[in-house]
Structure formats: C-alpha cells, structure tokens
Nucleic acid binder design. Structure first.
Lengths: 234, 234
DNA sequence: CTGCCGGTATGATCTGGATCATAATGAAGC
DNA sequence: GCTTCATTATGATCCAGATCATACCGGCAG
C-alpha cells in the first residue's frame, strides 16, 4: 500500500505540497476492518484522524432504547471523525464498517502542528467541515420528509448521484447501479423506520417498483419513477 | 450603538486583539428587523457575514408543500449563515426574525482577508463550526426521538439550559423562566408535528403539566417532571 | 360597532407505520 | 448432512398523530 498515493487521492490533501506531506508519511498507519467491526465508539476519546481509503462506513448514534440513528454513510476519499479529533473531545457517535474497509490513521499530536502551520490545510479542513455541516442540514431536512416511501426514494436518489454507475438493463434501457452493501436493517435506520417497513417497501419495489436488489448493491431500473416518488408532496 | 462593544460581546471575537478588530469596524453595518421579517432567503447568494446582536431568529427550510423545517433558533452572540458566506454558495435555508432583532453585517470580501491573515480568528471560526456541527448532530438525534411529547419536553429542557432564569413560583418553590416568543405554530415546527398537536400538548401542560405559557415566554413549573418526560424511553 | 384574521382550543375520524407473530430463506459452523 | 442464527418476508392488530371541522378570543382596519 503506497501511503503517499493513498493520501493524494484524498481531496483534503490535493492542494498540499510534497514538502509538507513527506515528513508525515511515517506517522500514518494503515488499518483494516471487516464488515460490522467498530472503528470507534461513541464516547471514546478521539486520538487519531481517520481517512477512509477503501470501503464504506456508517457513523451512527445509538440510543438507550437500542435503536440507532445513522448520521451518514461515508466511502473512499472521505475524512471522518476529524471534528472530534480536532476539538479534543470524545466522539459524538460511533463508526462501524459496512463492508471490508481500509483506513489511514494518524495520531492527533503528529498532525495537529502541521495543520496549524499550513494555512492551506486549515482552509481545506474548514471547507470540509462546512460541507459536512451542509450535509447534516440536508439530512435533517430529509428525515423529516413525510412518508417513508418518499424518504427511501430520496435516499436512493442521493446514492445514485454520489456513487451511481450507468448500466444496461438488457432490454435496451439503462439503469443505475449502486454498489453499497446495505441490509434492509441498514436502510430502515437511514430513513428512520422499522425494519419491517423497509422490507415491505423494498419487496414492493423489487417486483413492481423502480429498484431491484442485487448481490451487494442495488439497481435503479427506473430513475424517473424513483425521482417522482421522492418528490411527490405528501 | 457601539459597534466595538457589540462585537466584543460575540464569543467569536473575545480572544481577538484590538489591533486586528479596529480596521474592520467601519465595514460593519447595523441592521434591524421586526418579527416576521426575512433576514435572508434560501437560495439567495450569501454576500455578508451576519452576527446576531439582539433578539432571536430562526433558520428554516421551506418545503414545496408549504411546511417548514426549523434547523435552529439563534439568539444574541451567535453567528449565522457564515457557512454559506464562507463557502461562496447560496444560503441553504432562510432566516426569519422571531422578534425585533439587531444584527451586525460585514461584507464577505472585507472579512475574508482578515480571517486568512489571522490564525486566531480562523481557529475561533473552526471551533464555532464544530460546535454548530455537534448541535446539528444533536438536533438530528432529537427529531428522531419517538413521541411528540418527549420531543417537546426535550426542546424545553434545551431552552432551559441555554436561556433559562430561575424564578420564584410564589408557593415557595422555584421554576425556570424562558423568555422566547414562540407561538404554538413555531413550537410545532421545532418538534416537527402539526400545530394542533403542539396546541394539545401545551394545553395539557398548562393545566396539569410542568409548563405554563406566559406573556412572551414560558415558565417551567416543574423541571424534574419535564426532565422525566424527555427521558422516558418510548 | 362590525367584519376580518391569526392564534388558540377541542372534538371526531382516519391512517401510516409501529408492533407482534410466524415462517421461509440462506449463509456459517460443526 | 444438520443446527444455528441473521436476514427477508408477510399477515394481523393497534395507536399516535395527522387531518378535517368547528368555535372562541383579541387585535386591528374600516
């Protein structure tokens, strides 16, 4: 694993020069996690910056009644938990691997000084945090959308935009493939409904609707219908 | 209105020295709004940083079905909309005055340069953003809490913490007074229910429950009961 | 004074999704 | 192979809160 190459892929570092990055290389540690592994837990002290290199993770808050609220799903090229690390506070939520995941970690102390001495990096982080902020506002907006079906459609529209790949459906038409290993349970948490409800919706969509469940992902067979569902006010 | 004094009240500037702040003073503009006035609208371009000096405002997103989702309520000493301004994007939500409000505005360009040249200010903003971030996560967590009554209790607990004032109830016991002019409709939007539901809950609480509605605020007559309601899992 | 309007109040009905229950699938380990 | 456990599936019932409808109150314009 070429650490430098991996780092370069991260948007956060794309404008940072070699001289700044080189001395840090040795401090970075590559870690791997399997599906279901906890990358960190809510409440534990944030000591390392974490960069997702490969795979997807979810950031979630667990309530005392056992249910969880997913704050976001993050994939390759994303920085997670830096908010807590930078602020030297405990993680406000847990991070769990949704599939096999590779991350780069660097100890807070080894990175903090560099950040402060590198305005470009500070700016990049600030920008990143604002984007995260915007995403949270968006998400807040989403979870309050009235019907469960609408929220689910919205969710898939978002995935489609961020990680969709056009694929032929065989009958001459085109669909969008989303490679993300989300169980019905994961989906239910993302749209804030019970598992059964998510299952019912996906079952319906699997036979008549606009989405088909694949081996480890989903195919949107009719993007237009999906969009219409997500927008139907009511 | 002494601009410098107003600025000093803002947490964002408390550690910034006079020399840095002085040259900026002339660029600040004081603006006043009445209850219901729009301070900015979702979608419009963010050109000015806005600091709330007096009064409270709400940041809300209006859905195409006419309903609104309140993202937050901000009072004196708070910075609003800076995320959009800093990022040079359109406001992701609208800002509306909840009562008579005084704000300080400064043009993006006049402030931006100073930020970049003043690490302490950049740090302060970064810190502020993280706090905002944390608050959003908290809010996301809140709106997904099951029952409406619980959410309402939670809301008042939060207000109580941030702006409550201990007051005697007359019968020897103590309550907490919250001076914030929220209508039933405002409350309903904050906890994401219909107006009627908010009215029913407040009516109930007014007679038997832990909260009394005042002229332009609320009195929590029994903080313990309120806390218990907010925590009851179910 | 009267009519209008926004906020408050309350009752009657409807419904989406939670909840409970039961079962079929399917991968993982022995 | 068989057993175990998680996931998917589907049906039956229940309820918080939406929705609809009606009414009261206080301020304000004419």
């Amino acid at each position: 694993m070429d650490k430098l190459a991996a780092l370069r892929k991260l948007a956060l570092f794309e404008d940072i020069n070699e001289a700044t990055l080189k001395p840090l290389l040795d401090y970075f540690v590559v870690k791997r996690f399997e599906r279901g592994d906890s990358i960190w837990r809510e409440g534990s002290l944030a000591t390392h910056f974490t960069f997702v290199v490969d795979g997807t993770i979810k950031i979630a808050k667990y309530r005392n009644d056992g249910r969880e609220v997913i704050l976001g799903v993050f994939g390759a090229d994303e920085v997670v938990g830096h908010v807590a690390v930078y602020n030297q506070i405990a993680y406000p939520a847990s991070a769990v691997a949704l599939e096999d995941v590779t991350v780069l970690e660097i100890f807070r102390g080894h990175f903090y000084g560099t950040i402060q001495r590198t305005p470009a990096l500070l700016e990049a982080i600030l920008k990143n945090m604002m984007e995260r902020n915007r995403a949270l506002v968006q998400r807040l907006h989403e979870v309050t959308v009235s019907s469960a079906e609408q929220r689910l459609a919205l969710l898939f529209c978002k995935f489609s935009e961020s990680m969709g790949r056009r694929v032929p459906l065989g009958d001459g038409r085109w669909g969008v493939y989303i490679e993300i290993p989300l169980s019905r349970s994961d989906l239910s948490e993302l749209i804030n409904v019970r598992v059964e409800t998510a299952i019912r919706l996906m079952s319906k969509w699997n036979k008549e609707g606009p989405i088909r469940t694949e081996k480890n992902g989903f195919t949107i067979t009719d993007p237009d219908v999906l969009l219409k569902i997500s927008q139907s006010s009511g």
